[in-house]
């Protein structure tokens, strides 16, 4: 199990040019291992920059990234091995597909790791299952897949490297409800079976509320909040202040609370709301 820790991390876009912008501002953060962590923030809050720090795609200008206590930039030559341990699925990852067949494409990562043919085969099959992709598609060209299937093939390509930490930037962006559901439920299944740390970046507060144990809220390059779901969603005012949308049911509960109904703002799923309202209703009968 791998733990990622960020120490006094800062990063500038366009460093040393007149257009220099501080994208990440002295970030101190521990990503709890073995959990699903959600990273929230509106566009430009620095979350996409942050995830590219985790696997050494970007190098911090100040501060350190520690993977199991080891500074990942200590030996620059080893940075590729960090990328195998912290798997990053980029936004709209279907752009990364390039091989003749889905199988070969998923095998690209493991092949770069220098694994043997047989090991690669095992991993491809395993990752296809985790990504919820039908094995029949393996011999097809990735360009013949549907949008949702392409997305899952791209995710499988990262899972096949068997990373200790899986980081996904907006994994369900642009998909229809069925596609979103499939991506997230497969991720939860992957997490449960592998026990690996998963970090998900998303705009959708409703998805975050449903699937993440632990949440990190970012704004203007800083961490403004970190904690479990109950903690974060009970501070819905603060969430709206940094330009985030709160789940519909949370909004509903806030309206009810204003009208004197005994509910609290910390409710963020339909099931919680259902239970709370029914209990009030039954008491009043």
């Amino acid at each position: 199990m791998a733990e990622i820790k960020l120490e006094n991390l800062s990063y500038f876009h366009g460093k040393d040019t007149p257009y220099e912008i501080k994208a990440l501002d002295t970030i101190n953060l521990t990503i709890p291992s073995g959990m699903i962590t959600g990273l929230i923030g509106h566009t430009g809050s620095g979350k996409s920059t942050l995830v590219q720090m985790l696997n050494g795609i970007l190098r911090p200008h100040e501060g350190r990234v520690l993977l199991d206590g080891q500074d990942i930039w200590e030996k620059q030559k080893n940075i590729r091995s960090v990328r195998f341990r912290v798997g990053l699925v980029m936004q709209y990852p279907e752009y990364q597909l390039f091989e003749e067949t889905v199988y070969k494409d998923i095998a690209f990562g493991p092949k770069n790791m220098g694994l043997g043919e047989e090991e690669i085969r095992v991993r491809v099959e395993e990752s296809v299952r985790f990504a919820g992709l039908s094995p029949e598609l393996l011999q097809k060209s990735p360009f013949d897949l549907s949008g949702g299937e392409k997305r899952r093939a791209a995710i499988a390509g990262i899972i096949a490297m068997r990373p200790d930490v899986l980081v996904l930037d907006e994994p369900a962006a642009g998909l229809d409800p069925r596609g979103r559901e499939a991506i997230f439920s497969n991720l939860v299944k992957y997490h449960e079976e592998s026990g690996n740390t998963v970090v998900i970046v998303s705009h959708s507060m409703e998805d975050m509320a449903r699937y993440c144990d632990n949440l990190i809220v970012m704004n203007e390059g800083k961490i403004v909040m970190q904690g479990d779901r109950d903690y974060v969603f009970s501070r819905s005012n603060q969430l709206t202040e940094v330009g985030l949308d709160i789940p519909q049911v949370t909004k509903l509960m806030l309206i009810l609370k204003e009208q004197g109904i005994d509910v609290d703002g910390g409710i963020y799923t339909v099931d919680q709301a259902l239970e709370r309202i029914l209990s009030i209703y039954r008491k009043s009968l």
Binding site: I57, F84, G87, G157, M161
Partner: peptide, 9 residues
Amino acid sequence: TAQKARGAD
């Protein structure tokens, strides 16, 4: 970036 994340060199 995406290919680097898959270990491309």
